[in-house]
């Protein structure tokens, strides 16, 4: 982890998740998993964030919110979609108010599967996102913000 030498700050957004993945994201921050020991800080401010964690399928109401959050984050940035709903809409993809997976709204870099995604998987996804950030930081200006997907 050379170029990207700082600890990433994380922004978490709940896009119509059932809470299952949200509480697992929160569990990552609490004593058993404790990602804060790596200097990973959960911030509420998109302009401070390096990695955007999204749980839940995007619905019609929060589609613009998700896009705004993504635009507000400084480059390089990485997006981690967490859980079956964020990946594809999951069990709710046939619901009238559900749009689709997160990648229908913004480019996603890392996909973390699971219903609910386990804390270990979420931490692994964030670590993979660190690699994505390094690649993007090393890439020439204007490149590296596409929807390049890295399997989790």
């Amino acid at each position: 982890m050379g170029v990207f030498s700082k600890s990433p700050w994380i922004l978490h957004y709940d896009a119509s998740s059932c809470n299952g993945c949200d509480i697992e994201v929160l569990a990552c921050l609490t004593p058993l998993y404790d990602v804060e020991r790596f200097g990973i800080v959960n911030t509420g401010n998109p302009k401070h964030a390096d990695i955007l964690l999204i749980t839940g399928a995007v619905n019609e109401q929060n589609l613009p919110v998700v896009r705004t959050l993504y635009d507000q984050m400084p480059s390089p940035k990485a997006v981690v979609a967490i859980g079956a709903c964020a990946l594809s809409g999951g069990i709710f993809q046939d619901c009238y108010n559900v749009h689709r997976g997160v990648d229908s709204a913004i480019p996603v870099d890392v996909y973390v599967p699971g219903c609910a995604a386990r804390p270990e998987a979420i931490i692994d996804g964030v670590v993979q996102a660190l690699g994505v950030l390094e690649e993007k930081a090393a890439a020439p200006a204007g490149r590296g913000e596409g929807g390049k997907a890295v399997a989790a």
């Binding site: 896009a15 059932c18 929060n62 069990i91 709710f92 046939d94 619901c95 009238y96 559900v98």
Partner: peptide
């Protein structure tokens, strides 16, 4: 803000499958 409309899924999923939806 997080309304999905899952009650309506009962029309698309069989009653045995709805257990998965109910849990979620």
């Amino acid at each position: 803000f997080v309304h999905r409309g899952l009650e309506k899924l009962a029309e698309k999923k069989e009653f045995g499958e709805m257990v998965y939806v109910a849990e979620r």
